[in-house]
Amino acid sequence: MASVKRTPFAHWPCSVARTVDLLGDWWTPLVLREAFYGVRRFDDFAESLRIGRNVLTQRLNRLVEEGLLEKVPYQERPVRHEYVLTEKGRDFFPVLTAMMRWGDKWMAGDEGPPIVLRHETCGHATRAEVVCAECHEPLEYEDVRAELGPGFPDRLRERAAQLPRFTHSNPH
């Protein structure tokens, strides 16, 4: 069977596409999820995810290479490492919690969500909310429109500026 060639998105002028390129497959966000739950050692990742060692090695190496995890030795003989979230990795937490909230709403059964997050500061069970960074109101699809940002390539700017998605409010 011929393998499907993966389209690289790393250089697309879109943060969603670049993030999808980083994630690459379904295992990568699950490895990050386990890291957020406190898993640090290779064998613990393998056991909790029931993932092949070769696939896990590839995903951990990619996350280290991309700066989301840091490989830190915890034993000398034989040398063994832990995988620790970096600042860049910890900044991915809201992405996973947003996915979790959506999954809890649309994919959980009648019994409810399988995992609940508890905010240790106030003690309440909580969920992710996406809010405006300025006014702190919830960001709703109907209230947001996309505009070209400063990082959009000049060579594509004129063509993109004529696309309806960048010149009109969202269709309701």
Rank of each mutant, 00 (worst) to 15 (best):
W26M: 13
M99E: 08
F36P: 07
G112I: 05
N54R: 09
Q162F: 00
W27Q: 07
E137S: 12
L49E: 03
Y74V: 14
A160N: 08
R165L: 09
R101L: 03
V4D: 11
L22A: 10
E65C: 02
R155I: 07
R90S: 14
G67L: 09
L69F: 04
Q162H: 13
V4L: 14
P73K: 03
L49G: 03
R145D: 02
H136P: 00
A160K: 10
V116D: 13
G52I: 02
R118M: 08
E66N: 13
K5R: 13
A133H: 11
D110G: 13
E142N: 04
V16A: 15
N170D: 02
W26A: 15
H119V: 00
V4E: 11
E140R: 12
P114F: 05
Y83R: 07
H11G: 00
M1A: 13
L148K: 03
L23G: 02
G109W: 09
H168C: 08
K71H: 03
K105L: 06
R159I: 05
A10R: 13
D154V: 14
C132R: 02
H136E: 11
E134Y: 03
D154E: 15
T167L: 11
V20N: 01
G24Q: 08
T7W: 07
R118K: 13
H136S: 07
S169I: 01
F45H: 01
Q75N: 15
P164I: 02
H168W: 01
D143V: 00
D25S: 14
L23V: 03
D110R: 12
G149P: 06
C132F: 02
D104N: 14
D110M: 04
R33S: 06
E111S: 14
R145K: 15
A133D: 13
R41V: 14
Q75G: 06
L85W: 03
C135S: 02
E142F: 01
W27T: 12
V79P: 12
R127S: 10
E120L: 08
V4R: 09
E120V: 09
I51A: 11
G24A: 10
L23F: 09
S3Q: 12
G89H: 06
L69T: 07
R62D: 14
H172K: 11
H124I: 03
V20D: 05
E111N: 06
G38D: 07
E76K: 14
P113D: 03
L68S: 07
R33H: 09
E47N: 14
G103F: 02
Y141D: 10
V16H: 12
P150D: 15
Y37M: 14
W12P: 00
A35W: 05
T167E: 11
I51Y: 01
K71L: 07
P8V: 06
C135T: 03
E87H: 02
W106M: 08
T97S: 10
E137R: 09
L139D: 03
V39M: 04
E134H: 03
A35T: 07
A160H: 12
W27S: 12
F92K: 08
K88Q: 15
L96E: 10
W12K: 12
T121Q: 12
H168E: 15
F9I: 01
R33I: 01
H81Q: 00
M100P: 00
W106L: 05
K105C: 00
H136D: 09
E140H: 05
A10F: 08
C135G: 01
P29C: 09
E140A: 06
